[in-house]
Design a protein around this nucleic acid. Sequence first.
DNA 1: CGGCTACTTGAACAGAGTCAACTATGGTGG
DNA 2: CCACCATAGTTGACTCTGTTCAAGTAGCCG
Lengths: 193, 193
Amino acid sequence: SPYLFTILEGWAFRFKTLPDGRRQILNFALPGDLIGLQTSVFQMMDHGVEALTPMVLCVFPRDQFSSLFTQQPSLAFDVTWMCARHERLLDGQLVTVGRRNALERVAYVVWHLYERARDLGMSRDGRLSFPLTQQHLADTLGLSLVHTNKTIKRLRASGCIRWTERWLEIDDENMLKRIAKVDDAPPRPRPFI
Amino acid sequence: SPYLFTILEGWAFRFKTLPDGRRQILNFALPGDLIGLQTSVFQMMDHGVEALTPMVLCVFPRDQFSSLFTQQPSLAFDVTWMCARHERLLDGQLVTVGRRNALERVAYVVWHLYERARDLGMSRDGRLSFPLTQQHLADTLGLSLVHTNKTIKRLRASGCIRWTERWLEIDDENMLKRIAKVDDAPPRPRPFI
DNA sequence: CGGCTACTTGAACAGAGTCAACTATGGTGG
DNA sequence: CCACCATAGTTGACTCTGTTCAAGTAGCCG
């Protein structure tokens, strides 16, 4: 808690809970992600963090955080970059929970996590070690466990994914993306007017 | 778009839409808030921004953004601070949309916006100029317009708020917070182990 | 063998969505 | 000045997606 971490290996997630116990998972953290920025900036954290796997972390002492900006401007920029990236990730999740239906939600999160893990070189032939339980997925999606289970079943039946025993396999990327309605608009380098 | 803004006056909001038109409002921006950080960091923006009122902005040229970190470390820190604050705001919204029911959601957003506006000195005796339509609220909460309307009616009936003609009035803060289940845990200055 | 956790499945129920109609208000143009 | 239109808000009836409750299976570990 007095530290700022970078993940070198492993999966973790951030979450918040309501007084009566309802839990919402905010996002998952994979290798390369920063944990504890809020603590560094605000001297306190208003959410929990939990590991899904054994982890290897790179630890920075929090009290040197502000000196980062005077001593290492390019590192400071990287921190801001990570923070903006994270914000964008939350934007996507908010649309998912707010406006997608159950099937789209499951497809979106599965696709999103798969893509991130793949880009980090954690997958092999569309196959990936996947440490979430269905309860984690449900709490990410804002759905009940039972309904999440039934929705996963539907997604499996559609033939684009397989998910058994902590392993995830993507058989039809494009179908998955179509179901999830992921925005694949070409990142047009918008002209400056 | 080639600029980074700070709001001096007025209300705006950020949003994303799905291909079929469903819209999710991500958050509202009030005086003091930063707009366009993502554009500065990633050279592109994956969401829309819209004004709710006429606005007064403070404009920064985007191309000087990276030099901020070398020339003005304390300003750079402020940008990071704003970004972390923003992330935290999205965390709260995500819990709301994911795990609160309709009545709690309306109460939460009304309370949240009221508190922010009040802290900026925009209210007088619990009364506040409030430029949102019910459609905006619905798109913020991930609810349909009709259901949002009926839920607002219930909240009004409970007696803690009045909202007519673009004016919002909070009559019972505590009831509102209780309904919203806002986490009012005293920000315990957690001991450094 | 018992007890734990994760996962499945069915049935009944409720919260939220959809459709459709109606009111109120303000602006515009003939 | 009024007829017309658009937008915002309101309400009722019906439908449906997702929740809750309950019971069960499968694998793992002490």
